[in-house]
Simulated scan of single mutants.
Amino acid sequence: MSDNIFFNIIIIGGGPAGIAAGLTITSRCLSCVIVEANQISDQKLGECLPPNSLPLFKKMGLESLLQDEQHHPYYGNKSVWGNDKIEEKLFLFDKFSQGILLNRNYFEKQLREVSKLNHLQWLEGYTFYSVEKENDVTKVVLKSKTNTKTLYCNYIIDATGRKASVCRKLGVNKNTIDELTSLNFKYKIKKPVPFFVFTESLENGWVYVSPSEKDFLTVMIFTDLDLIPSKKEEKEFIERHINNSVLIQEILKKNDIEPEILDLKTRVANTTCLNVPFGENWIAIGDAAYSFDPLSSYGITSALAAGYYGGHAVSDAISGKTEALETYHFIMDNAFLNYKIQLKEQYATEKRWKEKTFWKRRLNYN
């Protein structure tokens, strides 16, 4: 690839949203390239796909990816929420009788392979540096450790996740609804754990557990950033939450798990949004436009949907149908508004700790 090349669309970010947009755009016979700084994805923990997400995978031709043995079907949820009893919900009588526990890193490798089989171009090892309008096109400057490339396009897509790098360079700020943060870690499993998704509300947050990786149990404790103590007190904070968890204690005892905290990482998990997810010659998709509380299970499903609809919208815009961007905004904004209503309702069902800081904040969502 030479230093000065024109594409109809440049996508910054090679995660699920960026790849979904790229696949959609190439299916429309437009030229595009995905720019990805990391040639190997960062280590990411598994993710659950609820049954109602499966039609989207079928619509996008990605359903076969979920049948790989690296992913596992799961047939329901177990939760402790609103009281101290374990409640079980099975998917047996749903239209789609199972969900999928993803091996997240493997799934992203699968998506990359699909994109390359569909002749989607990649530029890996380059970070996004700047964007500006130059005559009738958009100039994008990229940098690697040893080189600088200048590309030109009609539209640039921000698929950089919550950091929204392109939007920030353009001076477009996101609205932050909360400061939800997760402490993610693993436990070594000695015996198999049933393929369920486990969630439990706690005094100042909630916990998610799934056996989505072979020989390991994934655990995520969610609370607000200012409620997480210093690194020195972090271990004690986690152990206190684990000891107070009905679900986790049951899992540990039944499966003879040594509760040694492995691969501890802190990750942002908050709800954010743009007022308008597009502008002159740019569009934002996935977490760069709208990011979701993991309690909603929107995750990858929302990212793929945003890439699909955003890819069609920008393709239409290039062909002169600029109203397609407003349609994209309408679809995504309505989904986000419904999400906020449902999220507030879900948090409101937990009344045991309504005077605690974390829960008070969720009751005051607008």
Rank of each mutant, 00 (worst) to 15 (best):
D3E: 15
F6P: 01
N8Y: 02
I9V: 14
G13M: 11
G22N: 11
V33Q: 08
A37M: 14
Q39R: 15
I40E: 15
D42E: 10
E47K: 09
C48A: 11
F57V: 00
K59Q: 07
G61F: 12
L62A: 06
S64T: 02
L66W: 03
Q67P: 01
D68W: 08
E69K: 11
Y74E: 09
G76K: 04
G82W: 05
L90P: 00
F91N: 06
F93T: 00
Q98W: 05
R104P: 01
N105G: 14
E108L: 15
K109R: 06
L111M: 09
E113N: 12
S115E: 12
S115G: 06
K116G: 01
L120N: 04
W122T: 03
E124T: 08
G125V: 13
F128D: 09
Y129M: 15
E132L: 15
K133I: 04
K139R: 14
K139I: 01
S144M: 09
S144K: 13
K145F: 00
T146R: 13
L151D: 08
Y155M: 07
R162M: 13
R162H: 07
A164L: 09
S165D: 07
V166C: 08
V166P: 03
N175P: 02
L180A: 05
L183S: 07
L183W: 05
I189T: 06
I189G: 00
I189A: 14
K190H: 07
K191P: 00
P192E: 15
P192H: 15
P194H: 13
F198P: 00
F198N: 11
F198L: 13
L202F: 01
G205I: 05
V207C: 10
Y208A: 06
S210E: 10
P211T: 09
K214A: 14
D215F: 04
F216K: 02
F216Q: 05
L217V: 06
T218K: 15
T218V: 09
L225V: 07
L227Y: 03
K231M: 10
E234K: 12
K235F: 03
E236F: 02
I238P: 01
R240M: 13
N244W: 01
S245W: 04
V246M: 11
L252K: 08
K254I: 01
D256I: 07
D263S: 13
D263E: 13
L264M: 12
R267W: 04
N270Y: 05
N275A: 12
V276Y: 07
P277R: 14
G279C: 10
G279W: 10
E280N: 10
W282P: 00
I285F: 02
I285L: 11
A288W: 06
A288D: 07
Y298L: 11
I300W: 04
L304Q: 12
A305D: 14
A305S: 14
A305M: 14
G307T: 04
Y308P: 04
Y308W: 02
Y308H: 11
Y309A: 04
S315G: 11
A317K: 08
I318V: 07
T322C: 11
A324E: 06
L325C: 06
T327C: 11
A335W: 02
F336K: 08
N338P: 01
K340Q: 13
Q342H: 05
A348Y: 05
K354G: 05
K354C: 09
L363I: 00
